[in-house]
Simulated scan of single mutants.
Amino acid sequence: MRMMRVVGAWVALVLGVVFALPGTAEASGSRDVKVERRVFPVRLSDGGTYSVVGYLYYQGSLENRPVQILTHGITYNHGYWDLPEIDGQDYSYARYMARQHYAVLALDLPGAGESDKPNGDFLNLAESASALHQVAQQLRATAQKDTFETLVYVGHSNGALISTFAQALYGDAQAVVMTGWLNTLHSVPVSPDVIGLFLQQGPYIRLPGEMRAPLFYDAANADPEVIAYDNEVISDAVSRGQLMDLLIMLTYPQLIPTQALTVPVMVQLGDNDLMAPAANAATEAQAYPNSPRVRVDPISHTGHVFNGHYNRVEGWERIDAWIRSLAR
């Protein structure tokens, strides 16, 4: 009960401010894009070794391919980055970027999807950042010559928070892209009582579709079939340790080590995102004082789930163009 009272206080503050070589089994793919399932063993601070599963998307050869490592947000897994074709429209960020000649590794972060699920109170932000670092190191260590020398973290929402910490602590990437995440103080429209109830579920927590849909989607700018697929197929659990750390960082964003990012940073914010609104763009641009290049990029007609809205391709094109611009 004491823990719940402390968590409740955090939430109130938030709302007041509101490898083993990896296996490469061929997975289901579409047309020209190859998809490989890879498994990375990572050792966490409890001394245990856990498997992190990722799906590698690429077109043609892997030689001379910059790699994007994709990290999903809470209540998701790698499927966030590989939504299917719906109503004749392609919603897969991973396949889009593979066709732009990147290698794309979409992870099931520890505790999600096909990856191992440590104790949910143990699995927190620090453990997730360590796991991401170890995956990045293993991917590079087993790469072909001149492959994966350029690594970009692309994180959505809480995945962006994890990649921020991983980059600040370990420095594996040459650039960081964040979507749907603010590393500066902002409010979130969720009741403390509601979050308190979810924290009592147990070490792994699921949010119901009736709560996820209005928080994550701008219904006027998204296909209802996409929203239904999201809730029915790729909705996943989040560890309580990770969720509690997320609440802390929302309350005290000064604890997020953005000043340790010394690589280019791109932040995309949706104009209709209730969780990380584009209205905070000016403040967010000041959060990376030691980055040599910062771009905060508002995207119109977009809610929190960037890949699930009609305007998703505009955001993807801008990310591709920005990464390419770094080589100039």
Rank of each mutant, 00 (worst) to 15 (best):
M3L: 08
A9W: 15
L15D: 06
L21I: 12
E26W: 01
A27L: 12
V35K: 12
V39P: 03
D46Y: 09
Y50G: 11
Y50K: 11
V52Y: 00
L56D: 02
Y57R: 01
Y58A: 09
L62E: 09
P66C: 05
Y80T: 04
L83M: 15
L83Q: 10
I86S: 02
G88I: 03
G88E: 00
D90L: 05
Y93I: 08
H101K: 10
Y102D: 11
D108Q: 13
D108Y: 02
E114H: 07
G120N: 06
L123D: 13
L125Q: 12
L125M: 14
L132V: 08
H133P: 01
F148Y: 15
F148L: 12
L151R: 05
L151E: 10
S163L: 00
T164E: 09
T164Y: 11
T164Q: 07
A168F: 13
D172M: 12
D172G: 01
Q174D: 11
Q174M: 03
A175W: 03
T179F: 14
N183M: 13
T184D: 05
V190E: 10
G196Y: 11
F198D: 12
Q201G: 12
R206W: 09
L215S: 08
L215C: 06
A219Y: 07
N221Q: 14
A222D: 00
E225D: 14
V226M: 10
V233I: 12
V238R: 03
S239I: 00
R240L: 08
D245Q: 09
L247Q: 15
M249A: 03
L255D: 06
P257E: 06
T258W: 00
G270C: 12
D273I: 01
A281T: 00
N290R: 15
V294I: 11
P298N: 08
N311M: 03
G315F: 05
W322E: 08
R324S: 10
L326W: 00
A327N: 15
